[in-house]
């Protein structure tokens, strides 16, 4: 009996929280099925559901192209970040190369807001002919997320027992082979979580993308959506449909990889 009351109390406390976090997404879904007049009604659900917004949105703007750009840029950037951060974090934490100062400098470089790098990187891309290219964005994101990856990988590398590497060294494995063949498989959950998180960060990024791309061939989805709303004849139904189409890939990843993600973020932890 006592337990029942406690359960009810907890459910009462939890319901509004879940409601609040679900509301904006549910409303986007609802609006994406509303007709133009229905959008102005102020009701939650559409009075008459229409499916026209979805194909219309993809026709009104090159949403498919934007999503393709976002996915390719973020995946390559994510892989680049891991390729840069994994050997370095392994070297700093396990081989004691570079020392504590390097870890500190890497982490504190994350403190500066990205606006600091906006103008200098603009000129860098312009000078190298990479302005308004997807390759340019891949390089910028790949470099910019290294501190995040470093931070997320650190606890996984720290917790690994030293005996494993010692055994590898006795067997004559060099540090690179040890990292790739022994360490990487052990901390695979951490690498996967880190890869997903940095990829999603690139996928979601807006500031650099909006300043460094200016043609439909190179724009990523957040930029595409932001242009949607600059349009004076903005159609809310289409905008909601386009937004959901852009959110869908991230939510699918979150759904299938939630175990890795929560543990990756939680362990990435803070002291």
């Amino acid at each position: 009996m006592r337990l029942g009351a406690r359960h009810i109390w907890l459910a009462v406390a939890t319901a509004p929280i879940v409601g609040f976090f679900a509301l904006p997404i549910l409303y986007l879904v609802a609006v994406s099925f509303k007709t133009k007049d229905d959008v102005l009604s102020g009701h939650f659900w559409p009075t008459v559901a229409t499916f026209a917004n979805w194909p219309d949105a993809f026709e009104a703007a090159d949403i498919a192209g934007f999503i393709f750009n976002s996915v390719t840029v973020s995946v390559f950037a994510g892989l680049l970040t891991i390729a840069l951060a994994l050997p370095s974090s392994y070297a700093v934490l396990r081989l004691k190369i570079g020392g504590k100062w390097l870890a500190d400098v890497t982490l504190s470089s994350y403190m500066a807001p990205p606006i600091v790098a906006l103008i200098p990187l603009f000129f860098l891309l312009k000078g190298t002919g990479l302005l308004n290219t997807r390759a340019g964005l891949v390089l910028i994101y790949g470099f910019a997320n290294v501190p995040v990856a470093f931070w997320l990988l650190t606890p996984f590398l720290r917790r690994m027992p030293i005996e494993i590497e010692q055994a590898a060294a006795i067997d004559g494995a060099g540090p690179l082979r040890t990292l790739l063949e022994i360490v990487a498989p052990i901390i695979a959950p951490g690498i996967v979580a880190t890869l997903i998180i940095v990829t999603v960060l690139s996928y979601n990024e807006f500031l650099f993308a909006s300043a460094f791309t200016f043609s439909d061939a190179t724009r990523t989805l957040p930029v595409g959506i932001s242009l949607f709303q600059g349009d004076r004849l903005v159609n809310f139904g289409q905008m909601a449909a386009a937004s959901l189409a852009g959110i869908a890939p991230v939510y699918l990843i979150a759904l299938f990889m939630q175990r890795y993600l929560v543990s990756g973020l939680a362990h990435g932890g803070v002291k």
């Binding site: 976090f21 999603v200 957040p222 991230v250 929560v262």
Partner: peptide, 17 residues
């Protein structure tokens, strides 16, 4: 795992919603 979703949502889309 449910609260993970807002965190993963692109900020531009959060603004739109």
């Amino acid at each position: 795992s449910l609260v993970l979703l807002p965190l993963m949502t692109p900020p531009v889309m959060v603004g739109v919603a």
